[in-house]
């Protein structure tokens, strides 16, 4: 049993991380053309306009919640005088609401993918793997959140979070994860599966969040010649935004 736990919580995370990083680098190097959202809005717009934003904005909240829960140790919130009760109530209400919104959005999107013929026809093999996995990860996570509503329940900040941070200290705290209840373990395991698939699916579009747009001038000029040479132009420099 211990060997299994060591394999799952001590070795597998690093394998997944390796696949995630190398896979992304490989994909970016050899398939930059494939970095796209592969939007299907052209086929169907009405359902997407509900499901798309619901899923993505819900997901942003969920990710923010994970970052807070996993990365911020308990002593920090204690120092900030955030009471234990308030913290968990907040995690339950906000996290639960965000999770439900995400699942609802994904539900709409999956329904659309299955029922709209054109969208279904445009579904790739990796989609068929990633979509159910995404749903499973979300449902497991929601179960874990819901289970924390019961009084005297498992405090993930003393277990899962400790394990997660220990991964980056290169000293995986297998015991902390081993003690976690099943929903947490399943959630973590499925999430690792998702990260392993990430570079090879349409999920890579998450890396292309166009934040640079906020700081860019509207019109982009580029030279026929090499972009680098453009920057070297003296005298009348290229417009800002020219690469």
């Amino acid at each position: 049993m211990t060997h299994v736990h060591i394999a799952l919580w001590g070795v597998l995370p690093y394998l997944v991380l390796g696949v995630f990083l190398c896979g992304t680098a490989w994909r970016y190097r050899y398939d930059r053309f494939g970095f796209t959202t592969r939007s299907s809005q052209l086929y169907e717009s009405r359902l997407l306009r509900v499901g798309g934003p619901l899923f993505h904005y819900g997901l942003f909240l969920v990710i923010a919640g994970h970052a807070v829960g996993l990365l911020i140790p308990e002593w920090v919130t204690e120092r900030l005088r955030v009471s234990e009760h308030f913290y968990h109530l907040n995690a339950l209400v906000v996290g639960g609401a965000a999770g439900l919104a995400t699942v609802a959005g994904l539900g709409v999107l999956l329904w659309r993918r299955l029922r709209v013929r054109a969208v279904r026809a445009a579904t790739s093999r990796s989609d068929r793997l990633v979509h159910p996995l995404l749903l499973a990860v979300l449902l497991a996570g929601l179960t874990a959140t819901a289970s924390s509503a019961a009084s005297g329940s498992y405090d993930y900040r003393m277990g899962v979070s400790v394990w997660f941070r220990s991964l980056f200290e290169l000293e995986p705290d297998v015991a902390a994860m081993r003690a976690a209840p099943l929903p947490y373990q399943v959630h973590a395991l499925l999430a690792m599966g998702l990260f392993a698939l990430w570079p090879f699916s349409r999920l890579v579009h998450a890396f292309t969040v166009p934040l640079g747009y906020l700081a860019r001038p509207y019109i982009v000029y580029r030279s026929r010649g090499r972009a680098v040479r453009q920057a070297a132009r003296d005298g009348s420099p290229a417009r800002p935004g020219t690469r």
Partner: peptide
């Protein structure tokens, strides 16, 4: 003054200088 270029979040659309 291309508006397609202006609204592209990725900066993929561009106007050639030459």
């Amino acid at each position: 003054n291309p508006s397609c270029v202006a609204v592209c979040p990725s900066g993929a659309l561009y106007k050639r200088i030459e």
